[in-house]
């Protein structure tokens, strides 16, 4: 299914941002939030894994039912290396566009990469 990807600061991301090798930080950033109806449509439940793909790349994340209200058609990923794995660096202002990027979301059984692994993948 096609979605609009937005990244955002979350409380948990902020709380553990200076402790990036911790399990807490991994949990806070290797995830995405979706509208419950979209999750139903994809046959997803809390804690399932999804592959999120943009034209720039692809990443596997845990999915969370949006506690408040991520609207239908939107998937929200907290700021961090997982989100940035699939975001573009080009822009007309010097500042990358970290929000409202088209993406595809599909259910997956693949594992979510650990922090170590994703750094290795990004660095190449």
């Amino acid at each position: 299914m096609e979605f609009t990807l937005v990244t955002a600061r979350t409380m948990e991301q902020g709380m553990f941002v200076e402790d990036k090798l911790s399990e807490d930080y991994f949990k806070a950033t290797a995830c995405c939030e979706m509208n419950p109806e979209d999750m139903n449509a994809l046959g997803l439940k809390d804690g399932d894994r999804v592959r999120v793909t943009t034209q720039y790349g692809s990443v596997v994340l845990y999915v969370k039912r949006s506690v408040l209200d991520v609207p239908r058609g939107v998937v929200m990923i907290p700021l961090g290396i997982y989100a940035n794995r699939i975001l573009p660096s080009e822009s007309g202002t010097g500042t990358p566009i970290y929000k409202n990027v088209r993406c595809r979301v599909e259910k997956t059984d693949e594992e979510v990469l650990s922090i170590e692994e994703i750094v290795r993948e990004v660095v190449g």
Binding site: K20, G57, L79, I81, L87, P88, S89, P96, V119, V123
Partner: peptide
């Protein structure tokens, strides 16, 4: 700061 975590992935490659 932590650009490896916060920059788009393709530019992090050059950092490395």
């Amino acid at each position: 700061s932590d650009p490896v975590a916060h920059f788009p992935f393709d530019v992090v490659r050059h950092m490395a």
